[in-house]
Write a protein that binds this DNA or RNA. Structure first.
Length: 337
DNA sequence: AAGACGGGGAA
DNA sequence: TTCCCAGTCTT
């Protein structure tokens, strides 16, 4: 806490730190770096400045302001929780850790962050930074992704927390982990804790924390159909379960189906000209996506079968939430027009 | 306990 | 390419 200077990293949710802003920022910051969150946070607060405006907004509008940030269940859960607080709790935010934990999208980390930052309650945050700092300082050779390891770190953190200044303590320990006790190339030589750090003294900093086991990245091939008459195109809303829930994209050519046959049989499309596909690669944490976009020119959409699909003018694209892969294609397509 | 769930910046 | 980030939810 002596080391910590809040003004070193000014962030928009620190400015007027009301509990709504703190909650929103903590949801956005899950698995997401602060500098990536900042522009999303500012746009989002501009549109939904308080609990009421968020709770009353339609979900599709919320998703538009989240599009591109990833982990889209966060936005759905945030919106669900907003409705619970607004309409079932009379618009009054919870005052206790366990009540926050009951809300969708709020787990142990977020409940501790909100109750300590906004309410001054002594709940220790356990995030990637804290796990790393504690594992190194106390030289703990326990993985953080099982219950035994997690309990150990949780116990330690809640013993360490300054009960008179829990917010400052939590912010300080996370900031310290993010900027000094970093995952790679930590600044041990300038670290004010190095003379007491178990890992530093034993030369095991690089081995700690113990690595979690990672799931293999699968390859995923997608073929998209950009069917257009030059002014309009067809888009499709993804299912609300699974990847990119409820976001929009072009209709897809089913695996192993022939383009021309599919256009004839499925869309009842007789007259068209298909371009060579544009290939875009897109890396996700757990999938390596290779997408082929076929642009199919049609004279008009009158005869075309378009059930489950939405016909939109290009200028109306801003009304829909798309994932990053679609955005990448739009950039290429727009540049070539 | 394990897997699903995005995207971007740094190494 | 790989790692990992102010993690949570479902199975």
């Amino acid at each position: 806490m002596e080391w910590y200077h809040p003004d070193d990293r000014p962030l928009p949710w620190k400015a007027n730190a009301d509990i709504y802003s703190i909650w929103l920022s903590e949801i956005m910051l899950q698995q997401t770096r602060a500098d990536q969150v900042v522009p999303y946070f500012e746009r989002f607060v501009g549109q939904f400045p308080d609990l009421k405006s968020l709770a009353e907004a339609p979900e599709e509008e919320v998703m538009r302001y989240w599009q591109g940030l990833g982990y889209y269940h966060r936005a759905k859960n945030l919106h669900r929780a907003a409705k619970v607080i607004q309409f079932e709790k009379d618009g009054v935010f919870p005052r206790h850790y366990d009540d926050w934990l009951d809300l969708p999208g709020v787990g142990p980390y977020t409940a501790a962050a909100i109750t300590s930052f906004a309410l001054g309650l002594p709940h220790a945050v356990l995030d990637g930074n804290v796990f790393r700092l504690l594992a190194r300082f106390f030289e703990i050779y326990l993985p953080t992704d099982n219950s035994r390891g997690r309990k150990e770190f949780e116990k330690l953190a809640n013993e360490l927390i300054d009960r008179d200044h829990p917010a400052k303590f939590n912010q300080a320990i996370m900031d310290f982990g993010a900027t000094v006790c970093k995952p790679a190339n930590p600044l041990c030589d300038h670290c004010p804790l190095n003379s007491q750090c178990g890992a530093y003294l034993s030369g095991s900093v690089a081995q700690l924390p113990l690595k979690k086991k990672k799931t293999a990245k699968k390859k995923w091939a997608i073929t998209y159909l950009h069917i257009t008459n030059g002014k309009q195109t067809l888009i499709h809303r993804r299912p609300t379960e699974g990847i990119w829930p409820g976001l929009y994209e072009f209709p897809r050519l089913p695996d192993r189906e022939d383009l021309k046959t599919h256009l004839n049989d499925h869309f009842k499309l007789k007259i068209f000209s298909a371009h060579e596909p544009v290939q875009i690669k897109h890396q996700l944490t757990h999938r390596a996506v290779t997408a082929n976009f076929y642009r199919v020119e049609v004279p008009d959409f009158t005869e075309l079968k378009k059930d489950q699909l939405t016909l939109v003018n290009y200028e109306n694209f801003p009304k829909f939430a798309f994932h990053r892969l679609m955005k990448k294609y739009f950039h290429i397509f727009t540049d070539n027009r």
